[in-house]
Design a protein around this nucleic acid. Structure first.
Length: 818
RNA sequence: GAGGGAAUGUCGGAGUGGUCAAACGAGUUAGGUUUAGGACCUAAUGGCUAUUGCCUACGGGGGUUCGAAUCCUCCUUCCCUCACCA
């Protein structure tokens, strides 16, 4: 029985790796680079959880593999330190967010090092470091310069008791998460980044990305491009309050239903709503708005459609009829113009609204308008004057043309994507480098005065701690040098994570955001690994930032990470989400303590496909522990000598397979391949030293510590971690033997089919393109006594002109009889 | 409502036109080893049969094909994301 002291082995090799600095990356233009990145973490006080370990292990395996293959690998890490939890902890127990964060980071680093990760610690980045967020501020100033950062009024969830703005998820069910006070909607002046300027390119460049389909679909949805037209609706003058506008543009994708517009609905949240409200209706509208306030944004979806008459009328440009304008709870204020033309006969929402308020329902497309449903399909027009009888698809065009002639409409493209509001009324974020001056107005801070550091002495309690800090707020105007006040809002933390991958290229640089040459060498990220939950936030923002920085000329590429991989979720044994409150959290530290780091790593990647996730299994990890132990036993008992032919084939097959599998992140398959390989070695009893060393190398990316130990045990100097990845002896591969015999294989396959179909005269044989010359049609034809035609095909293109092509695989032809 | 994904033994899951369903792990049962337990080794683990074998099975129906878990189509169930986007 072999007794192994994993703890000792692990710390021994971790120490050596660190001493010899074998994972530090240096720019070297002669070597091909490979940049592996896992999404950096928010350093929470609870340390790394099993999902982190899963994520890091995958990146680490890829990184180690590439390193052994001879690439110049960059595998950095850092901390997304700014953010709410640190601030909340500060409010709760009086510690400073910086203290909290630094303590958490220390703990994280210890745990990450414990996992044996190949991070280059020289390049660590911490977003709470002024040396980092200085460049957040710099990018902001550049955006301001280019007109991509601007201020506007926007509504926020406001807790009157905490005197603070709440994120949507903190304001669920309309109450403040912390103090249970009713949340109010408040309008504040806030900073926005014009991501919408890049909406089209963000959409277009999806085709450049090797990303999961799902993520691309989610982003497409999120950006939500839709083509339609904008129609001007005049507001009836006689009933309008004095200051109102004369017309209001409306976005629609259904101009064909214009004759069926019988009323209008403006968003109840619209900032210009009061321009439409007449004196008589003021009270009614106010009553309605008050009622709405008590509903949080989250519940809006399930809400019954409700509204109130504003007192104003619009003129339908097609019929010239006056139609009432309602304020409604179901219209989105900042999509389109915040007002919709309602076609109750052909839109379900308008239909419900019309039923409720007894408004006219005018059918303009032939079809069944039922008692409880609008008719939303296509059909021929009716009740539409000269357009009657036209197919509605055609009418869309024709009515648009007709309106265009009257200068009442234009074609427009609308996006669901909004500009990115980055103002947060919070302390623990990047200060926005803006000064308010009584004489000069809104003035940006000079670049040379960056960074604007967060003040250390602040009081936490109610409201934004920066607002109460007069000493910090008071400053000189950069323009006129008179007394002025700082912006007290800080930036959304997603700003920090939108470009951190660039900073890793040159993390210490104090003169510029990073050295252009270094960024050019390392970027873009070759493999980016992280959770799917970032599909619509971080992954869009960082694409936006990359495109902006490219336009600024500091980088020469427009996509940060052409290849993206999402790891799955790990749940508890019952399949439930792990959470502290449920008490079902699996601590990676405990597991590593109990079974060893390499066992933990091996188990994580062996139990399921990495993109699928799995349920934790204590029995399962014990199985992995047995495997690791078995390897030590093999090395204890193995005789070093010669390989059998079978062994030689096996090891070469494994080298080939595992290389391909790591490349494609199919780690689970590798774990199986490794089991089979070591099982065979154990059965053989005697193998060559070369085979033994190769199998250790194959195992090394997964289990780096024990392989170092066993590598040294075989009498090797130096680290296996930087040893060369074994090469495949192609003559020893299994496939070769089958390839040689492709002809007889085809014959063997056709024969039984022909027995069933003796009347067929001709056989089509489909093989992979590279196999075509190995096939001898004459020989096959002779053997089966039929005419034979051979086609090259592969799974993507079907080559048969008669569309009868069948798929072929290497060594497995497709056959078609005629 | 829109979009995406999934359904295979007792369980987790491989397999994505033929070689070949159930690899690999876990569980269970029997035997060996052991003072006992654990660990380890061997075998069995859809049905029938003493065995060669035969049959049944990849959520359900239909289809394409000489051949379908795999491709197409409809349906059912489940998961995820966004969601009153005009």
């Amino acid at each position: 029985m072999v007794e192994v002291n994993f703890k000792k082995i692990e710390s021994k090799w971790q120490k050596k790796w660190e001493e010899e600095k074998i994972f530090e990356a240096k720019e070297d233009s002669k070597k091909e680079k490979y940049y592996v990145l896992e999404m950096f973490a928010y350093p929470s006080g609870t340390g790394i959880h099993i999902g982190h370990a899963f994520n890091y292990t995958m990146g680490d395996i890829s990184s180690r593999f590439k390193l052994m293959q001879g690439f110049n690998v960059l595998h950095p890490t850092g901390f997304d330190s700014l953010g709410l939890p640190a601030e909340n902890a500060a409010i709760k127990d009086g510690s400073h967010p910086e203290e909290y964060t630094n303590k958490a980071i220390k703990n994280f680093i210890k745990q990450q090092k414990g996992l044996g990760l190949t991070y280059d610690w020289q390049r660590m980045v911490n977003t709470a470091d002024p040396g980092y967020y200085k460049w957040d501020q710099w990018i902001f100033l550049k955006m301001l310069e280019k007109g991509l950062a601007y201020q506007k009024e926007a509504v926020v969830n406001w807790c009157p008791s905490c005197k603070t703005v709440l994120a949507n998820e903190q304001a669920q069910s309309g109450k403040c998460e912390r103090c249970d006070t009713k949340v109010e909607i408040k309008s504040l002046k806030q900073w926005f980044l014009k991501i919408t300027d890049y909406a089209d390119e963000l959409l277009r460049d999806h085709k450049k990305l090797n990303w999961p389909e799902k993520t691309i679909a989610m982003q497409k949805n999120w950006i939500g491009k839709s083509h339609g037209i904008e129609i001007d609706f005049e507001i009836a003058p006689n009933k309008l309050p004095a200051e109102g506008d004369k017309s209001w543009p409306i976005f629609t994708t259904r101009p064909d239903t214009l004759f069926g517009v019988t009323f209008m609905v403006v968003s109840a949240q619209h900032l210009r709503l009061n321009e439409l409200v007449t004196e008589e209706q003021e009270k009614e509208v106010a009553k309605f708005l008050k009622k709405l306030k008590s509903v949080s944004e989250k519940d809006l979806g399930d809400l019954e459609k409700e509204g109130v008459f504003t007192g104003s009328y619009a003129i339908n440009p097609a019929t010239n009829k006056e139609i009432p304008i309602y304020a409604g709870n179901f219209v989105v204020a900042d999509y389109g113009s915040g007002m919709v033309m309602a076609v109750p006969a052909h839109d379900q929402r308008d239909f419900e609204f019309a039923k409720k308020y007894k408004l006219e329902i005018k059918q303009v497309i032939k079809g069944d308008v039922a008692k409880d449903r609008a008719y939303t399909n296509s059909g021929k027009l009716m009740n539409s004057e000269s357009f009657n009888g036209m197919e509605n698809q055609e009418a869309k065009e024709k009515i648009t043309e007709w309106l265009k002639e009257k200068r009442k409409a234009k074609k427009v493209i609308n996006y669901k994507l909004r500009d990115w509001g980055i103002s947060r009324q919070r302390y623990w974020g990047t200060p926005i480098p803006i000064v308010y001056c009584d004489s000069c107005g809104v003035v940006p801070v000079h670049e040379k005065d960056l960074p604007i550091k967060l003040p250390k002495n602040v009081k936490f309690g109610k409201g934004n701690p920066l607002e109460g800090n007069e000493k910090w707020i008071k400053t000189k105007c950069p323009k006129c040098k008179k007394e002025a006040r700082r912006e007290t809002d800080t930036m959304d933390t997603f700003v920090n994570s939108s470009w951190y991958f660039l900073r890793y290229c040159d993390p210490q640089n104090n003169r510029e955001i990073f050295d252009k040459k270094k960024a050019k060498y390392w970027m873009p990220v070759d493999l980016y690994i992280g959770g799917a939950e970032h599909a619509c936030m971080h992954l869009i923002y960082s694409r936006f930032y990359t495109k902006f920085l490219a336009d600024l000329g500091v980088i020469n590429f427009r996509e940060p990470a052409p290849r993206l991989f999402h790891q799955g979720m790990i749940n508890d044994e019952k399949g439930e989400k792990m959470s502290k409150s449920k008490g079902n959290v699996v601590e990676p530290l405990e597991t590593m303590e109990k079974y060893g780091v390499d066992t933990t790593r091996y188990f994580l990647i062996s139990v399921a496909s990495p993109d699928k996730g799995f349920n934790w299994s204590e029995k399962g990890i014990q199985g992995s522990a047995r495997f690791i132990k078995k390897i030590f036993e093999i090395f204890e008992n193995i005789k070093i000598g010669k390989d059998t032919l079978g062994m030689a084939v096996r090891i070469n097959q494994s080298i080939k397979n595992i290389g391909e599998q790591i490349e494609n992140l199919q780690f689970r398959k590798s774990s199986i391949e490794l089991r089979e390989l070591f099982d065979m070695i154990a059965d053989e009893g005697e193998v060559s030293k070369e085979t033994l060393e190769s199998s250790l190398k194959l195992l090394n990316p997964f289990c780096p510590h024990i392989t170092e130990e066993l590598w040294a045990g075989l009498g090797n100097e130096g680290f296996i971690s930087v040893a060369e990845w074994p090469t495949v002896d192609k003559s020893m591969l299994k496939d070769n033997s089958t390839e040689k015999d492709l002809n007889s294989k085809i014959i063997a396959q056709i024969k039984p089919i022909l027995e069933k179909f003796q009347d067929k005269k001709k056989a089509y044989v489909y093989v992979m393109p590279f196999e075509k010359e190995k096939v001898d049609p004459a020989a096959i034809s002779e053997a089966i006594e039929k005419e034979v035609e051979v086609w090259a095909t592969n799974e993507k293109e079907k080559v048969d002109p008669e569309n009868k092509a069948k798929k072929a695989r290497p060594g497995m032809p497709g056959i078609y009889l005629e």
